[in-house]
Amino acid sequence: MHLSARQTRIAGRHVANEPLWLRILLIGISGIVVTVLIIVPLVYVFVQAFGNGPAAWWAQLVKDRDTQHSIFLTVVLAPVAVLLNTIFGLAAAWTLTKFRFRGRVLLLTLLDLPFAVSPVVAGLCILLVYGMQGFLGPTLREWGMPVVFSWPGLLMATTFVTMPFVARELIPLMESLGSDEELAAVSLGASRWQLFWRITLPNIKWGLLFGIIQCHARAIGEFGAVKVVSGGIGGQTDTMPLRVEKLFQEYNNPGSYAVASVLTLMALATLAARILLERWTEYQLAAMSEEKEG
């Protein structure tokens, strides 16, 4: 996926052969769609958020305790979910590319389930299993560790919906890399950890980072699954996306847009990181192939 920029460029050469009117039409259509669906709403969020000046915007974010808490919750929950998914993604990709075993295809398919299932359904499943009506809820309550309507449930929901990102990024990459280098390392006496840290990780680091960035972007913005297990307790289980909705419903448009603008800024930062990363890997690959040719 980190080669996508280059792929588009190759595809671009093909389009150049199409008649002029078709090119203008297609470019026009995509231009309109992007403007109407992306640029206008995006600009509007910032216009609304900063309409009364940056000081008012800042005040909206810091003067409200519930808003403050929602920012704190999201900024902390998302990285934890990403960490869990990074560990899981590495383990899954390793298992699926290095070993051939019965049920491998099934596991590969299941890995995509969080993308296929609606987040609301995911949230409901967590509620049904870990809620007081579910089979684990009463036990967890007795142990004093309720999952739903508190942060473990939020973490669980976020982790679930963002689960495939890292693994999906790594599996094709590790498959294409093959195991020649690793076999060489093993034949030279490398231990398993040495193998991982010195051979595998350096080879997959950009793909891994790319997966992490995407995973993080999705984790910050998750709404549906989190909404179901949150219980909407102000200043306790409201994440930023939930807070945006709540403020909007409470007629607090400036507050709502302020939080929305922060979410958008986080997303834009992710996008920027992605582009930089794409450029960087492209540059690296080019340098590598030059080296080989020279």
């Binding site: 929950l77 934890v80 990403v82 960490l83 942060w151």
Partner: peptide, 11 residues
């Protein structure tokens, strides 16, 4: 990763 660990702890 280190950032995440710090975050987990502070969380």
């Amino acid at each position: 990763k280190r950032f995440s660990l710090v975050a987990l702890f502070s969380f």
